Computed example of a mutant assay.
Amino acid sequence: MFVIDPMPLYHQMFKEMGPQHWWPADSKMEIVIGAILVQNTNWNNVDLALNQLRAKTNLNVKQILQLSQAELEALIRPSGFYKNKSKSLLNVLKWFDQADCDFDKLSQLAGTHLRKDLLALPGIGEETADSLLVYVFDQPAFIADNYARKLFGYLGYPTVSYHQLKHQITLPPTFTYRDAQEFHGLIDEFGKIYLKDSNQFNQSFLSHFKLRVVAKE
């Protein structure tokens, strides 16, 4: 079996593009909320929803949980799929609120089952779970989002699912959560510029890049 060593790609992208300082948010709770609202939409729509929710609740979890379903739906409506997202948001925030939004406490309680616990929450899929691991719980993980799948496809390793690409990537023990944040930010910023079609990618600095593939014992 062969797996992909992502480090040469990460180092090349970092060299060319520099640090990205992702995720764009003022607090970890804003990241949690944004990670749910951004599903199936773009960040401009999320910004509109976040601004409305912030004006009403200051993104305070207890204040959000006191909103009626209809109030919350109206506030997050710009993000789309607002009925489902409101239900997901309430369930996820209740989970965080049970530990007074103490991220370290939640991480310690879950231990090695944290990703599994996140996936058990309504509305949390693999991409959102990994995003929360990386940006909220400060744990290294590879986020195999749409831009990542497109990029690795252009580099010669097309994948059909999030799960498939994630399990082809082997992160070294030295890979930190800060590396994971930067790698995700680099891929997404690269994607916005170069991954709309093959012509754009062929004009990028990665057009002739060769991934390093290694045998897995």
Rank of each mutant, 00 (worst) to 15 (best):
A141W: 02
A120P: 00
A74F: 12
N146S: 15
A141P: 05
L65Q: 12
Q63V: 03
V61A: 15
N146E: 12
L67C: 12
G156A: 05
A144Y: 04
Y154H: 14
D102M: 05
Q66C: 12
L155K: 05
F152Q: 02
L72D: 06
T128P: 00
Y162I: 15
L106P: 01
Y82H: 15
A110H: 10
L155I: 12
R115E: 11
L67R: 09
R77H: 13
E73N: 12
A120R: 12
G111T: 10
F81D: 04
S68R: 14
F81V: 09
A120Y: 07
Q63Y: 08
Q139F: 06
K116R: 13
L165A: 02
E127K: 15
D104L: 10
T128M: 05
T112C: 10
K85C: 04
Y82K: 08
K94A: 13
Y135R: 02
I124C: 03
H167A: 00
N84K: 13
T112A: 15
K166D: 01
P78Q: 05
A148H: 03
S86I: 09
I143Y: 02
I64T: 04
S88I: 06
K85N: 09
L106H: 02
Q168S: 03
P122Y: 13
E127L: 05
A70N: 14
R115G: 00
V136L: 07
I143T: 08
Q63S: 10
P158Q: 11
S86K: 11
V92M: 05
Q66T: 13
V136E: 06
V136M: 07
Y135P: 01
A141Q: 13
H163K: 15
G153E: 02
N84G: 12
K105H: 10
L106Y: 01
F81Y: 15
L119V: 01
L151T: 10
Y82R: 09
S86A: 15
L118Y: 01
I124R: 03
T159D: 07
D97W: 13
L67V: 06
Q108T: 12
I64A: 06
L132R: 01
F103L: 12
A74C: 01
K85H: 03
G125F: 08
L133F: 04
L133M: 15
K150D: 00
L151M: 09
D97I: 05
K166W: 00
Q98G: 04
P158K: 14
V134G: 01
D145I: 02
N91D: 14
S86E: 11
L121C: 05
L121P: 00
N146L: 14
V134N: 03
